[in-house]
Write a protein that binds this DNA or RNA. Structure first.
Lengths: 358, 358
DNA sequence: CTGAAAGCGCTAACAA
DNA sequence: TTGTTAGCGCTTTCAG
């Protein structure tokens, strides 16, 4: 009657007339077991419903799993600073489960540094890896090595399908661009003029990333009942003065009424130019809840932000790897985050939630 | 040098010159300990950074924690259906940590049933409770009982400050109303007419809930540079015909150009009326990702939805209770969820994420 | 009030 | 090839 009782390895051993050691060997296919004992154990296993106790398992095998993280150094860029802001609490959260997170930081604009850190990472022979594969060829080599070494890895932020990670965590960038377009059209409704995607060139590696967004943006505008003209502004300037001059020129040339800025850090520079030139009718849609952007949203200089939650991406990646290591739970191949729309009226609800949800 | 070593109770015992039993007593304040031993242990604890091993803890105390859930029956209402959709995976997630979630369902429109289920719940003497306190007096009585029995409880969805739960999980409804107003103003920009809050009376219990939203809505409109006229429509009709008649009358009377519908299920009925009467210039902002609303958003009959993520609310509530039981980690007194804006262009990213994030 | 010791269910090393 | 046993870190008796 009392079938609710939890079945232990010991029970299986008794039922099949062998020792716990043998049962363990059969279940985990380790060591040598005679055909006959194996059959006995498997017969019992088939009849009952055995679920191993994971607490006992990780406690017993006194093993600490190492998850290595490869990401840009947080001092260089507010976006990556935000992304890694959750690292401390994530480490703390998993520590009780014998899971360690070891960060390796590379220089954001230095593919060589990426490669070097990935080598250092491998040297600590981790049980799993989570990385932001922002350098395509280097990331591919790295992925191949991980495959060979049979180390599971998850990518976040940047999608590289060829690398075939255990999972990808990020957003649908094309759709993100469409969303931006819809928002910009909403606030620039009946004025005439064009909507521009503004690329501020810092380094090349991001190009694909941003191209997807721009495609979505343009496609949306093109498909409107009354199509909205779009344009693309590319500025490669090293000083704010040069930037300002180039931007103003483009704005005049294309009669820009709204700007789509696909980088998180571009909005500030842009807003400054608009402010200095009293162009407050030009609307901005930007990305991410970095402090500068939050301030600009509050002051009304940015209309909308789209939140990529890079911190949550990391958090979820670790979550999936941890479950993979502890429970052998395979994560979904792709986890696409919601495209969060941030305005003056809901920004507070996001900044406060960010603290609370770790 | 090797200070990375994990500190065990045994180590603390050795350092403070007492036994593990005594250390355990001090840490958990159980049993009797002399002042002097207590001081010794506490001194050591202050110096080192002890984090108990959760695995060993739950394995050692062969205890299963019971978290009881009190919520409306899911068959009656799509909102509550959504709220409880994450229950299964949440149960599975916590099972390995010896935490059981026992649901108790009451009838949504029956305060008496709420009371009865709360009694049944207490009879199973749970270690913690999470509930949606939608009946004010009954919830207060229930809360008092829990306090007396020293059972920690968390409220979600509905805020009752007087009940003083361990935590409240939900949204800032006033701000939510403001957000709705800002969105509705965005899409109804220069047309003239009024913006109306539509209350479809089903039962009384929700009134406060919705009043907060309406206040936020009205305050926002009033404070605009060019104030927007608002009005409040209250309909108590039992058939769709009666509802249609009342709604049309109100729309004409107040020259309504936009409708704010604070209930999740009201949008469908309303959209139907607008569709039948070719009033497609009247915009709707509604609540929650229930299927009807998703369809209406996609078809363009709803402009925006605000997502309350009732399923995540439940998930987080369980998370906090579990951590409270396992680690004695006190949750934040209030966890206010982000006010998520849903449009045609980001709805897919939400519906797919919902599955993946449990 | 305190310490010693026997578990919790599993792993892994060691004999046999 | 097998069975036995000593841990993993914590809880919970049970003597003293």
């Amino acid at each position: 009657m009392d079938k609710n009782k939890i079945i232990r390895i010991k029970d299986i051993a008794k039922l099949s007339g062998v020792s716990v050691g043998t049962v363990d060997r059969v279940i985990h296919e380790r060591g040598k077991v005679s055909e006959v004992s194996k059959a006995k154990v498997e017969k019992v296993l088939k009849e009952i419903n055995y679920t191993p106790n994971l607490l006992a398992k990780t406690l017993g095998s006194n093993k600490v799993f190492k998850i290595a993280l490869l990401a840009p150094h947080l001092d260089e860029d507010p976006y990556w600073n935000l992304a890694l802001s959750a690292l401390g609490s994530t480490q703390k959260e998993w520590q009780p489960y014998h899971i360690e997170i070891l960060p390796f930081y590379f220089e954001l604009h230095n593919a060589d540094s990426y490669h070097k850190e990935s080598e250092r990472l491998l040297a600590c022979n981790p049980d799993a890896v989570i990385s932001a594969p922002i350098y395509l060829p280097e990331a591919l080599t790295f992925s191949k090595k991980l495959k060979v070494m049979n180390i599971p890895f998850i990518h976040f932020n940047t999608l590289i399908t060829e690398a075939d990670p255990l999972a990808f965590i990020g957003q649908d960038l094309y759709q993100s661009g469409r969303l931006a377009a819809s928002l910009l059209n909403l606030v620039c409704h009946d004025q005439k003029g064009s909507l521009a995607t503004l690329h501020i060139v810092q380094s090349i590696q991001h190009s694909i990333h941003f191209q997807d967004k721009e495609n979505g943006f343009n496609d949306y505008c093109k498909a409107l009942a009354s199509p909205q003209k779009t344009t693309s502004i590319l500025i490669n300037a090293h000083t704010q003065e040069l930037f300002e001059a180039s931007l103003l020129k483009a704005i005049n040339e294309f009669e820009v009424k709204g700007l789509f800025i696909p980088t998180s850090s571009g909005a500030k520079k842009t807003a400054e130019v608009l402010r200095n030139n009293h162009l407050k009718d030009i609307k901005i849609v930007g990305y991410d809840l970095i402090q500068d952007n939050i301030d600009l949203l509050r002051s009304g200089e940015i209309e909308f932000l789209i939140n990529q939650s890079p911190n949550k991406q990391l958090y979820r990646g670790v979550y999936h790897l941890a479950h993979h290591l502890l429970f052998k739970n395979p994560p979904p191949k792709k986890e696409l985050f919601p495209l969060e729309i941030i305005t003056r009226e809901n920004i507070d609800s996001y900044t406060c939630a960010q603290i609370l949800n770790q």
